[in-house]
């Protein structure tokens, strides 16, 4: 579904933030991208989405090179949904307008059908359809941003730190909603996260970045269980002497 092939990218005249990244993500799986601040997680997601154009390498969606395709075209023509980390709702528009904006390119009947489905799926939004998005809580905004991205029935969903700024309870609800979307739709979900433990709890596979390169990749469950990984990237206790990595270091 998504294939990132030796991508290099940066901003302006600055150095490469991504230094030859390889990544794949398929339908029906959640792939999470982890790593310390400044390692290039969000830049990689922006590169896949089309906000940042790669300086080298390629981003492919369903076998087609989409490195130079702008974001709005990917949303319309490649059925991609994107949820930014902050400012992820149009605060001056109503909840209904926020969601319906994501379905402008769909036929009216399909748009109305999808809207009704989402209202049934997320009752907390259904009762606030005519309210301004600025009146919603942090968790409700995150659900609203998910609903906006989902209304066009995307094949690929990109999430930039969906748990940012949420309480532990809301974070749990948002991750549960993301896992439910994968299970119900078979969507390909790529998610950048700071809360590594929680992200690995719902993800199928993970990439851990360090200084713009993939340092570790593997099954989420393996990474979560590995003491070295916990120590190096997840802030856990140092590994015991006999502990050996069970993941593929790159």
């Amino acid at each position: 579904m998504i294939r990132v092939n030796k991508v290099r990218a940066g901003y302006g005249d600055g150095p490469d933030i991504l230094q030859g990244i390889d990544l794949t993500a398929s339908g029906g799986e959640i792939v999470t991208i982890l790593g310390p601040n400044g390692c290039g997680k969000s830049t990689l997601l922006k590169c896949i989405a089309g906000f940042v154009r790669p300086r080298g390498g390629a981003v492919e969606m369903e076998g087609r090179d989409v490195s130079a395709v702008p974001v709005h075209e990917k949303v319309k023509n490649h059925r991609m949904g994107f949820v930014p980390q902050t400012d992820n709702v149009f605060s001056t528009l109503t909840v209904a307008d926020n969601i319906l904006l994501g379905a402008r390119h769909l036929p009216v009947a399909e748009r109305n059908e999808r809207y009704a489905e989402l209202m049934a799926q997320y009752p907390s939004l259904a009762s606030k359809q005519e309210r301004k998005a600025s009146a919603l809580s942090g968790g409700e905004r995150q659900i609203l941003s998910l609903a906006r991205a989902l209304i066009s029935n995307p094949k690929v969903l990109l999430l930039d730190e969906p748990s940012a700024g949420l309480s532990p309870l809301m974070m749990h609800e948002v991750f549960a909603a993301i896992a439910e979307i994968r299970d119900r739709t078979g969507m390909c979900i790529v998610m950048v996260e700071q809360n590594a433990f929680e992200a690995l709890g719902v993800a199928d596979r993970a990439y851990v970045l360090s200084l713009g390169k993939v340092a570790i990749e593997g099954r989420a469950a393996d990474l979560l269980a590995d003491p070295a990984m916990r120590h190096l990237y997840l802030g856990g206790e140092p590994p015991a002497a006999e502990g050996k990595p069970r993941f593929a270091a790159v």
Partner: peptide
């Protein structure tokens, strides 16, 4: 109008507008 909603969305948050499929 749809154009008006796109104008207000772009004015509010142009990055999000792009991510919503609007040609800002």
């Amino acid at each position: 109008t749809d154009l008006g909603r796109c104008m207000r969305a772009t004015a509010t948050n142009s990055v999000l507008a792009s991510a919503t499929g609007i040609d800002t």
